[in-house]
Design a protein around this nucleic acid. Structure first.
Lengths: 123, 123
DNA sequence: CACCTGTATCGACAAGCGTCAACATAGACA
DNA sequence: TGTCTATGTTGACGCTTGTCGATACAGGTG
């Protein structure tokens, strides 16, 4: 990139690349290949019924967080629950924290908001 | 773009039976297994980078619709494009209509709105 | 220390998915 | 009719994913 001038310093770059309000509404302009690559992972994470249930269990739990023990009754084995929670974490949709014996998961609001933003329908 | 002559003013077919204001926001209450099963398919459809690009190409195209020929330059072969468009159709996100030589795709707004609704963050 | 419970990881398997080349189908036009 | 273009379908291939049992790790309790 050829940056030959004193920069206006106005470009605000959202610092962490992990928790990213990525893209404009899908109706605004076509996504680039790179944007699509980054963003598809979020939708993919919710593209499994078990993960979608786990996510809604965390999202709707009182206090905004849920212990694994609160949400692990979704009809699959414990290792499978753990596997799906890891996927949701890797996609940036959930964060986890161990407190004593239990591990608590909570929703990452900015990422979910970014997804919702992309689905906004142009009036 | 080429304007087909003497277009038989497109009659809008009624939405498919799956057109769905499915579920409340994911923060409101946990999804049932059945709801999750139905809904995950929509997110899954957008969980592939090529499909996400195709969808945004249709969604952002002028007139709200796009011919396959307008959007097929996404770096995969023509059969693959057709395959992905079929997936998006089956998920209820796109509808298609043949007009003469070309096939036009457009977004199904109610389904996209339902997805956005689910991602609404509780204040 | 030993033991128990909650959660994550490993290894393996079947099923699903993305991709392509080849072929098929639909419409326009000569 | 036949040929050309635009899309869809088929069949096959390899990679990914969801699932489980077995096992490992972490923290509490006795």
């Amino acid at each position: 990139m050829s940056n030959a001038k004193a920069l206006p310093l106005l470009e605000r770059q959202p610092a962490p690349e992990s928790a990213v309000p990525c893209c404009p509404p899908l109706t605004e302009r076509p996504l680039t290949a790179e944007e699509a690559e980054r963003t598809a992972g979020m939708f993919k994470a919710l593209g499994d019924p078990v993960r979608l249930r786990l996510f809604s269990l965390v999202a709707s739990h009182e206090g905004g967080e849920a212990c694994v023990c609160d949400i692990s009754d979704v009809g699959v084995s414990q290792p499978t629950v753990s596997h799906h929670l890891k996927k949701l974490r890797e996609a940036g949709l959930l964060t986890s924290e161990r407190r004593g014996t239990w591990v608590y998961y909570r929703v990452e609001p900015s990422v979910v908001a970014a997804m919702g933003q992309m689905l906004k329908i142009a009036g």
